[in-house]
Amino acid sequence: MTIPVFELLRPKTLAEASELLLKHGDDARLIAGGTTLVILMKQRTVYYPYLIDLQGISGLDHITADGEGLRIGAMATQRAVETSLLVRRSFPALADAFGKIGNVRVRTTATVGGNLAHADYRLDPPPVLLILGADLVLSSPKQTRTVPIKDFYRGLYETALEPGEILAEVRVPPAPEGSRTLYLKYSSLSANDWPCLGVAALLKGNAKRCDELRLGVGGLAEKPLLIEGLELARNETITDSLLDEIARLVDEQISPISDLRGSEWYKREMARVFVKRAICALAEEDPHL
């Protein structure tokens, strides 16, 4: 399979890139790592006469931290996040989620921005970013706006990006003091596969007393979801009946798509199992217990 001829445009600044996007409209698309786009172009599923290369724009691949949290440039590679000591120390689950994508070659080439913007319903990182309350910085010639990640996903392959807008940065605020996070990826076919589903959990407290619980799930609806209503767990002891109640809450909010990796029935079953496993693992992990 070859890619039909197109022209690669190589802007030097974000503003220039946005302008090119606006100028060419539906005839142009941003290319970040290219791992998804190149496949779709080869399969002739999509075709754009112009691809706008984000690689030549400097200052888009940073991973830095300050008092306000972590900042990851959209062009940082998935592998860079996975192996960043900064990320691993402060948000181990985030490093884990990026580290569980596809294979090392994909992670070396593909970017954070490309992953988030592609908006496939099964991606690994979004559930973790959801529980961490990440904000996405969207840039266009008119304005730079910040969108909470839970508002970024609109539907299957649909995001809040407006014409001409580029995802420039991901901002992750500091996690609540004393909280721990975990990402569980479950592949139902070969061990190497895309996820059947992914569950991210944040817990502050321990098995005896839950101060705060957050859950994010991937692969269980048309878009990644942040589970709502988890206040019910606050100040509770983590018992089997509480876990059942949480699982019920999750079950009400998800709407899994049957696919090659599991039917709707199976995904609902697995959501229950992995949500419980994630919470239990975090509860038992508390160093103060």
Binding site: L8, I31, G34, T35, V38, I39, R79, G102, N103, V104, R105, V106, T108, T109
Partner: peptide, 21 residues
């Protein structure tokens, strides 16, 4: 990008050359 038979090193890191322009 799934099988690795087109792997090359780019600045020392492995990539699938079928996915790189």
């Amino acid at each position: 990008g799934a099988c690795g038979t087109c792997t090359v090193l780019m600045d020392g890191k492995p990539v699938s050359s079928c996915l790189v322009l």
